[in-house]
Design a protein around this nucleic acid. Sequence first.
RNA 1: GCGCUGUUAGCUCAGUGGUAGAGCAUCACCUUGACACGGUGGGGGUCAGAGGUUCAAGUCCUCUACAGCGCACCA
Length: 869
Amino acid sequence: MNEWPKQYTANEVEGKWMSRWKEMGIHRWDPVRGRDETFVMDSPPPTVSGALHIGHVFSYTHQDLIVRQKRMSGLNIFYPMGWDDNGLPTERRVQNYFNVRCDPYLPHDPHYTPKTDGKGPPEKVSRPNFIQLCRQVTRSDEEAFRRLWQRLGLSIDWDQEYATIDDFSRKTSQLSFLQLLRDGHVYLTETPTLWDVDFQTAVAQAEVEDRMMAGAFHNLRFGVKEGGSFVIATTRPELLAACVAVVAHPDDARYRPLFGKQAVTPLFRAPVPILPDGRADPEKGTGILMVCTFGDATDVEWWRQFNLPLRQILGKDGRLLPVKFGAAGWDSLDAPAANRFYSELEGRNVKQARTAIVAMLRTPDGAALPDLGAPLTGEPRPIQHSVKQFEKGERPLEIITARQWFVRLLDKKEALIQQGAKIQWHPPYMRARYESWVEGLNQDWCVSRQRYFGVPFPVWHPLDDEGRPHYDRPILPKPEQLPVDPLAEPAPGFDESLRGKPRGFIGDPDVMDTWATSSLTPQIASRWAEDAARHRKLFPMDVRPQSHEIIRTWAFYTIAKAFLHERQVPWRHVVISGWILDPDRKKMSKSKGNVVIPDHLLEQYSSDAVRYWAARARLGVDTAYDEAVFKNGNRLATKIFNASKFVAGHFEGQDLAALTPAMVTEALDQGLVGRLREVVRKAGEEFAAFEYANALQSAEEFFWSDFCDNYLELVKGRCYEKEETAGKRSALATLKLLLSVQLRLFAPYLPFLTEEMWSRLFAAREGRERSIHTAPWPTEAELRAVAEPSASDPYGAAADALREIRKVKGEAKVSMKTPLKELEITGNAKDLDAVRSVMQDLLSVSGAPAARLTEGKVENGRFKIRAAL
RNA sequence: GCGCUGUUAGCUCAGUGGUAGAGCAUCACCUUGACACGGUGGGGGUCAGAGGUUCAAGUCCUCUACAGCGCACCA
């Protein structure tokens, strides 16, 4: 037997095992075994360009706990790892890192190398060069994650690694798109779209966040063409030139006489209809409002409902476009004046335009009709109101008309809620979040992004004789051609020279929403796009672990895709990890600047200790970041090490194989095995419900209090006997069984320490038991090999009596080792029988030469002890 | 506005109708035979508040307060 060190040195041990496990191949999925004996985890591909932080450690540990317990239960584990690398976070990181901006109109420079000084205005680089930089950055970011996962001991099958931008993921994503297009679930249309003016891309409803912002009501006097005036209230005066109608509530007596007449806007003197509609709130503002193209979602509704003209004044860069009043669609009663006013706004961004237009609205010559006075009546009244923003953006979203690809979901809300109900959510109440999200959907899924580092749409558009694209006749690749890049490869049947030429083609310029690919992680991992048999073996998957803020994105889109493609749920269970809160109970996030970087923690406290901290958090429950819990983890590891060392010491010179459950003949030993059986039963049940924290708690309670504090002390006397008595053999056989079972109970949580102990004590050369992580998860049956004690609860009796004896010694302020001179135990007949069955151990631990047992009534507790020192 | 979750010891949390718990912190005591990264014992709680159901409520129901989150609204 190897020499046991005085202390456990986690860093050394942890470094050793990760590479050993790799050599042993114990994390590998076996493609031969059937679905029924396979456990499939749809592990989240982290956004690699995001900061690594303790939250990652937290939630990925949760998955690993589940996976490790299932592996020990004999299941064939499929635990892949992907990297989510495409999309805006990476682009943004590349822009900052290299100080570059993508200019898609620049030609590819094959000899491009990025500058390193990063000073001055950003360098413009071509799309292929930009993508190349993105790939370069993500490669090194992935490496950082990979290192951390390995250090943390995640039992990932690295043969199943993927990245959401790699060839196969692009193929999968494009194939999914083509199938949805074929089945009529996808359409291309020019429509008002939520638009981020900084990133200059469309975004989907799921990426929109409502944020409270300061704004102001501006009261503007409109004229009535037939005579008179009224005052509207708006928070967006800069959109006045885009006004296409005025709306008030049909029952509003103040404005009823105006319906059917024409309003005239200030400054631009555009005649617009005055319309009645129930959505106008008489209580709000002045009760009458202007409809612009487009200030908000209701504007879009009115625009559609009343078939209003489009006056787009906001450009994709968020600046006001050049427009000409007096031209078709831009009616004005005084076009020269309108154009003079507008020239003050053109080219300005929203904020600048607002300042400029408010100044003009203060002058009487801006009046809609002569003699109405300055259009701005009163001062703007500041308000706080919620404004839609891109979750990654800083300026409010605009609504801009653009051609976009959509996945049709609004007509499937009911079905998608049904799908959600077929999945078991842990904790169950998280399903409510999914449902309220689906119920609140008000747009189809906009999947096109006007960006660069993403999966391209596998689509070309034919050009007519004049070189105009026909968007209703897309040219599509054959599935076997995928992945394709329509901007780099010619459309099927065309020569590259016809790109952009009349009767030629253009490639669709957009890339897909990152979620369009991430929502296919089950299909990517199962290789749905090329291996139907493998897909059937892995899909639907068993568990999707994720955090709750992405229920509306990742969970929702994945459920939607699985439904659209196969009318299936993607997984049977969703397990939701909580958040990490900083000590002030604020969510830990990069933007708040309160994140904790995990590397030094793993050094300082060991991976096992950090995993222990993560394991104590129940699903869905937010957890305060508390280093005291890491220390607790270390204490547990140390205690297990020391207990194992003690047991190992008594195994010296013993034939371990000969210590069988049949040798457990002592009542104390049998009684304790019975208790552990309860712990094993509970742990199994808890794990079945993914409640690993509760399983840990019972194992820990048993280990610390029953095994270490009580049993080891009670049994020491027998262990140290010189002779090979039946009592000693019973003790050793019990220690072997109890320690083996307990190490296995702790193995998912403390994989390094338990493997080290297992390798010293129990590891076999071959088969499942060569590693604790493939060794069988403890079962009640295994512990039933030990006979039941004849007395009732002998261990409990011994523990209770011991507590009383310790109390006596404690009150006398003497060492627990001080022997008792006399001992009398009073209790009822049944309990005294139990005491009698463990008497040898009780005398040994108390140091009493003998004990008198007296039958009698006891006030509190089971026994009354009278002891003399 | 609608909804979900929570409120238990100084702190972090467990407790799923039957005598209020754990770890940390705190106090006192115990050091050579696994472990001072330890052991033993103690102090500390009208379980947010009010009502109700029940033989019995931290636990079930109703309302209220506070906190966090989700959804919706956004002139």
